[in-house]
């Protein structure tokens, strides 16, 4: 694990998301109404829709292209749709959002 301070939680809109670019592709950082932060793949497994542009409700997001709904805890598609998005470790400490860069495909700092 190599926790990296990415941003302040307030940089992410409430019930919204921001994108970070990683060696694994775009990762979406979601912030729910409860001020939890989730890090998941930004790419919908259905047709590649940008999940960070979706509507966030509860701990779920709805893909803007075809309304697939994903649970941000597990990455599982909900309802009749089948699919899963990658989820990544994330911590919120003192209003800062920290990501594990190792899990995001960066070699740990020497």
């Amino acid at each position: 694990m190599n926790w990296l301070d990415i941003a302040a939680i307030d940089d992410i809109p409430l019930r919204g998301a921001r994108v970070i670019k990683t060696p694994l592709g775009c990762v979406a950082l979601f912030r729910t109404a409860m001020a939890e932060v989730f890090a998941v793949s930004d790419r919908c497994p259905h047709k590649g829709g940008p999940l960070s542009e979706g509507i966030v409700h509860g701990q779920r997001v709805t893909c803007p292209l075809h309304n697939w709904v994903f649970d941000l805890n597990t990455g599982q598609a909900q309802g009749a749709d089948e699919g899963q998005i990658a989820t990544y470790p994330v911590r919120v400490e003192g209003g800062r959002v920290l990501l594990d860069t190792v899990a995001l495909g960066k070699k740990s700092a020497a």
Binding site: P13, L14, R15, G16, K47, G48, G49, P50, E53, G54, I55, V56, P64, L65
Partner: peptide, 19 residues
């Protein structure tokens, strides 16, 4: 509330199938 809007109205542009 922009977060209660579909992406097109939140970003003031129409999303296309390739994002």
């Amino acid at each position: 509330d922009p977060q209660s809007r579909f992406v097109n109205e939140r970003k003031h542009a129409n999303i296309q199938k390739d994002g």
